[in-house]
Design a protein around this nucleic acid. Structure first.
Lengths: 156, 156
DNA sequence: CCTGTTGCTGTATGATTATTCAAGTGAGTG
DNA sequence: CACTCACTTGAATAATCATACAGCAACAGG
């Protein structure tokens, strides 16, 4: 699956989750506004791959967003779940003002993000994880530094 | 609703619950075998009334939630889409410099992000949404405060 | 018995979606 | 490089679905 196609399908999910989209041509026009120019034929294929079905209230996922939702990570960790996740997956670490960008091997982002969330650190405003990158948003640069230090300690 | 029509719709439900039915014409042919002769146009109407949607595996009922949806008779003033999305999904709210991190239940992030995008607020540089977290990036901390205020107002 | 109203349906046709075919692209291989 | 293979896409077209309109039946009120 090309990055281009993956991105387009992500935009489609976002669009149909918001205002109802009446048909594929309307969807096509909305994508044009986002700078993506594809034909109705491609959208027909995308919608089938995304398992979106047409209803009188727009396109909807057939069975509870199963195809949309990222895999849920089991929370079996007894104690230092984050420490283990970091040791297992963390490749790189980049501070950026009040943010921290973490790199992992493919598939490693969700486990680390889940572990960070589970810590409920007050300095963490939130996390966003894709496949191999995690963005941790701290409440301030100072808070980011504190988080960073704590994670470095966990890696020892 | 005539008894005739009610009976036919009952047969339709039974048919589609069994073997998958590819399209309305196939459904029409199966009804002929049961002694009911109607046209494709009537089936189009029946399927909509029964809230069956077409999938690659035949016609299926849409999940219960959608079936309970209020009848579209009333055409009331559409409440602000963002306001609706926020009231329905928003769990938490965290400012972080020029960013705003929103938390939702699983699956709630995309609808809110879409609604925020639709506002086209000039203070919003962009949004990023995962499954239960949205990151709104504002053009400045001041802009973030303005956005935050506006969203808080919408929640009233 | 009229007359108006409502619900259901078929016909014809317009609107929407799916598919066929060919071309382009990029990864992997010898 | 030359080749193959898998994947993606657009154009054209086929297939499918939705709807405007009109007819008909049932029914209610006068």
């Amino acid at each position: 699956m090309s990055a281009h196609k993956r991105f387009r399908q992500g935009q489609i999910l976002k669009l149909v989750a918001g205002q109802p989209v009446a048909n594929q041509d309307e969807l096509r026009r909305r994508l044009v506004h986002l700078g993506m120019r594809v034909t109705q034929a491609t959208l027909s294929r995308d919608l089938r791959e995304l398992r979106l079905v047409k209803t009188s209230e727009g396109y909807q996922p057939l069975r509870a967003a199963a195809a949309v939702k990222p895999p849920v990570v089991e929370e079996t960790a007894p104690q230092h779940s984050l420490a283990r996740a970091l040791k297992e997956f963390l490749l790189d670490f980049r501070p950026a003002q009040n943010m921290l960008v973490l790199k992992t091997p493919p598939g490693g982002a969700q486990p680390i993000a889940a572990a960070v969330d589970a810590e409920h650190w007050k300095e963490v405003a939130g996390t966003l994880a894709g496949d191999d990158t995690i963005l941790i948003i701290a409440t301030s640069s100072r808070a980011r530094a504190a988080i960073q230090k704590r994670m470095e300690d966990l890696l020892r």
